[in-house]
Amino acid sequence: MKKISGNTGSVFLVIISAMFWAGSGLGAQLFFVHSSENAMGLTAFRMILAGILLSGICALSGKIRPGIKKLLHSPRLFLDIFIYANAGLMLMAYTYFEAVHVGNAAAATVILYTSPAMVIIYNSIRYVRLPSRRDIITVCLAVSGTFLLVTGGDFSKLSVPLLCVELALFNGAVYAFSSIYPKHIFLQMDKTFVLALSMLLGGLSSWALDPGMHWSAFLASDVRLNVFCIVVLGTVIAFLLYNIALMYISPQQALITAAAEPASSVIMSWLFLDMDFGGVQTVGILLVLTAIIVPALMKK
Results as ranks from 00 to 15, higher is better:
residue 299 K to N: 11
residue 264 S to G: 15
residue 197 L to D: 03
residue 264 S to P: 10
residue 75 P to N: 04
residue 277 F to G: 10
residue 118 M to E: 03
residue 193 F to T: 04
residue 177 F to P: 02
residue 109 T to K: 07
residue 265 S to V: 01
residue 217 A to R: 03
residue 203 G to A: 06
residue 225 L to H: 14
residue 226 N to L: 07
residue 263 A to V: 12
residue 17 S to D: 08
residue 113 Y to Q: 13
residue 275 M to G: 01
residue 295 P to L: 12
residue 211 P to W: 15
residue 155 F to E: 07
residue 238 A to K: 07
residue 160 V to N: 06
residue 57 I to N: 06
residue 75 P to V: 07
residue 181 Y to E: 03
residue 206 S to D: 09
residue 132 S to M: 07
residue 25 G to H: 05
residue 150 V to M: 06
residue 125 I to M: 09
residue 229 C to K: 04
residue 297 L to W: 14
residue 89 L to E: 02
residue 104 N to P: 10
residue 252 Q to V: 05
residue 67 G to Q: 06
residue 75 P to L: 04
residue 231 V to M: 09
residue 275 M to L: 10
residue 10 S to H: 01
residue 127 Y to D: 05
residue 91 L to M: 13
residue 235 T to R: 08
residue 40 M to Y: 02
residue 193 F to A: 08
residue 123 N to E: 06
residue 92 M to C: 12
residue 127 Y to F: 11
residue 53 L to Q: 07
residue 224 R to V: 15
residue 114 T to W: 01
residue 232 V to D: 05
residue 66 P to K: 02
residue 40 M to H: 04
residue 243 N to T: 04
residue 8 T to G: 10
residue 81 I to E: 01
residue 81 I to W: 03
residue 139 V to K: 01
residue 11 V to A: 11
residue 72 L to P: 06
residue 126 R to V: 06
residue 223 V to A: 11
residue 52 I to P: 02
residue 280 V to F: 15
residue 285 I to S: 01
residue 272 F to L: 09
residue 284 G to E: 00
residue 152 G to Q: 10
residue 133 R to P: 03
residue 185 I to S: 00
residue 198 S to A: 15
residue 194 V to H: 00
residue 166 E to Y: 15
residue 170 F to K: 00
residue 218 F to H: 03
residue 248 Y to M: 09
residue 243 N to W: 09
residue 226 N to Y: 14
